[in-house]
Amino acid sequence: MASYQDPLDRIVAGNRVYAQHTTEQDPTAFVELSKGQAPEILWIGCADSRVPETTVCNCRPGDIFVHRNIANTVHADDLNAASVVEYAVAFLKVRKVVVCGHTKCGGAVASLGDADLGVTLNTWLHPVRELRRKHKTELERLLDDDARAVRVAELNVHQSLDVLKQHPAIKKAINERGLSLHGLIYDIGQGQLRLLEETSSKKSNGLWSPN
């Protein structure tokens, strides 16, 4: 891509190129998109700029319904994520819900310690820091902080999935039409997605056992 003095010019120009390319490849692309959306997947991922879901999954506009926040965390009392889930599951009837964490996650790294990030971020990351405390023994055995951050990211994905399983629309869709939930980790250094094994079902009663 050409270089631009002003970063804003760059994305405005990028958008023109996108619109032109899309129309060249398929003159009816925007007519079709105007009609509506029927995504099969709800993606709950991190706000991190290095994990753009549609790009890294080689998908097209219209394929993935998206919620992205700090450290792909789903809190039980968060109306923002709950509204996205309600809309995607009850109205759009997506077939899959995925929660995708990633390596080198700033939120996971920050959760390895208790540095003061300001009251907003401290509160948001509190459940992730709690995970670190709960799994202290397991994490201490790991080689370095990189490995610990990946493990915290995995645990966080499982925790978000556990919270999602309590969402009324998800409960209903699992029973009525076989909706399924999946955990993923995206490896930024490899550009690859890894599917997490379903390990959290045993813990869905909210009890935790030390590792």
Binding site: M1, R10, I11, A13, G14, N15, V17, Y18, L33, Q37, P39, P52, E53, T54, T55, C59, P61, G62, D63, I64, F65, V66, H67, V84, Y87, A88
Partner: peptide
Amino acid sequence: SDSRIPAEAITGL
């Protein structure tokens, strides 16, 4: 969240 507006794709980033 609409699936038709992947931010990075439509801005060429």
